[in-house]
């Protein structure tokens, strides 16, 4: 971990901090359903950013296609429930697997042909538009609704408090996956690919294969989150394949700092909450204030603080060490 050192005790500590923070939030919200829904959305969004960290932060591939995978996973899970009666508790794995399959189909030629940097970013951005257009043809412009049933096997509850808890569990699982990657061979390999792909190849790393692994893990997690996203949004349509949401995920990841789990969480939670606040307070008079904020922060970070929030955390850490 960038901020807290590398020992496993410290990681346990960090998880504990995240868990306590997550547990405290609902107490503060005190049963206000709107805020609870908001909190659940923000936590789910943070999980997406943490998942993005695998492909964007560790492997350094600027993926702008998050909602292609969120959409595929979410819609497959929902359709499996609606059409085949498969409960989402199982269905989310099918949804995740469907996203993963898409990732493999896209990823193999993409990495095989050495597509990276701006071209990778464009390709993944285009992927979202392709899915958006094609699913519009297949699904029409209609909004679809989930069956009214609730319960744990449907991962769906009327209480937003419970939905918030589910989102929190997903966040913690995503963090755990990141930690596992970071501390194992794959994490080291991905980071070296991010730093210098050719040099990585020259120490025997099959860079294509490892980039594909990163894309697979990322897409699986997003696919699983897709269904929860639908439950929180209360409906789904082709509009789930949304370019600007996909972009936001990457933006939060960059602002958080590449490869930094806590940076990603902080940036997603702060920016997304602020964004929601702007949207609810000024949305009718000054629409887009939230995105304007993201834009300004992004420019400032890009020019003055390219290592994002993680860079700031790092500096504070160093300063504290010196004092001691």
């Amino acid at each position: 971990m960038v901020a807290f050192g590398t020992g496993s005790k410290k990681i346990a500590l960090e998880l504990l901090v995240i868990a306590i923070l997550l547990a405290v939030i609902p107490l503060v919200l005190m049963g206000n359903a709107y805020y609870e829904l908001l909190a659940a959305t923000v936590v789910l969004f943070s999980s997406m950013v943490v998942a993005w960290n695998i492909i964007g932060g560790y492997a350094g591939q600027l993926d702008l296609g998050a909602f292609a995978y969120v959409g595929v996973g979410g819609i497959i899970t929902s359709e499996l429930w609606i059409k085949a009666g498969i409960p989402p508790l199982l269905g989310i794995f099918a949804g995740g697997a469907a996203s993963l399959l898409i990732a493999v189909i896209i990823g193999i030629p993409t990495f095989r042909f050495g597509i990276k940097e701006v071209w990778y970013a464009l390709l993944t951005a285009a992927l979202v538009v392709i899915f958006n257009n094609l699913s519009r043809v297949l699904m029409g412009p209609t909004d679809y609704y989930l069956p009214p049933k609730t319960g744990i096997i449907y991962l769906k509850f009327n209480s937003y408090e419970i939905m918030y808890a589910i989102a929190s569990v997903i966040l913690i699982l995503t963090v755990l996956a990141n930690l596992a990657i970071e501390r194992s061979k794959i994490g080291y390999y991905l980071k070296s690919i991010r730093e210098d792909e050719l040099a990585a190849e020259m120490i025997g790393i099959d860079t294509r294969r490892y980039k594909l692994y990163a894309l697979m893990i990322y897409s699986f997690f997003l696919g699983v989150m897709g269904y929860i996203y639908i439950v929180l949004a209360a409906s789904f349509s082709y509009r789930m394949f949304d370019s600007s949401s996909s972009l936001s995920i990457a933006i939060m990841g960059i602002i958080g700092g590449l490869g930094s789990i806590e940076g990603g969480i902080v940036s997603a939670m702060v920016l997304r909450s602020l964004g929601e606040y702007f949207r609810s307070s000024f949305g009718s008079t000054v629409p887009g204030l939230d995105l304007l904020l993201y834009g300004i922060v992004l420019v400032i970070v890009g020019i003055f603080q390219p290592e994002g929030i993680a860079g700031i955390i790092n500096r504070i850490n160093k300063a504290m060490k010196k004092k001691r």
Binding site: A200, I203, I205
Partner: peptide, 21 residues
């Protein structure tokens, strides 16, 4: 061609991972 944002030890260890997983 350094791995700029990795520690020196991690960079060398990434090489070792080829033989020691």
């Amino acid at each position: 061609r350094p791995f700029k944002k990795m520690s020196v030890l991690d960079a060398i260890a990434t090489g070792s991972l080829l033989r020691y997983s």
